[in-house]
């Protein structure tokens, strides 16, 4: 079962990219600097790297927005 980022929940904070994904499967596909200086990142989970180890999904606050979903 693949893991995905729910675009309706994702806050585009980019934190997932800096977390300790064992396979570094979180990849930035776009970044934008907003008017007040906040960086927003569009991130995807690279299915070719993800081993479905469940780390990102099972750790309660791995994603502050709980935007990582199964399937």
């Amino acid at each position: 079962m693949a893991y995905k980022i729910d675009g309706t929940k994702c806050l585009k904070c980019g934190l997932c990219v800096t977390q300790d994904c064992p396979e570094q499967a979180f990849v930035v596909v776009n970044k934008v600097k907003e008017d007040d200086g906040l960086m927003r990142y569009t991130v995807k989970i690279d299915e070719s790297r993800c081993t479905e180890c469940d780390t990102c999904f099972s750790l309660e606050w791995w994603c502050p927005a709980k935007a990582i979903v199964k399937g």
């Binding site: 806050l11 585009k12 800096t18 930035v28 970044k31 007040d36 502050p64």
Partner: peptide, 26 residues
């Protein structure tokens, strides 16, 4: 995480006082 604020509140805040601190650049 200023992106969770309503736009009106976000526009009124002085963000120079609130930098991301000790978080890695991506």
């Amino acid at each position: 995480y200023r992106q969770v604020l309503p736009a009106a509140a976000r526009a009124q805040m002085d963000w120079s006082m609130w930098p991301d601190d000790k978080y890695p650049e991506i």
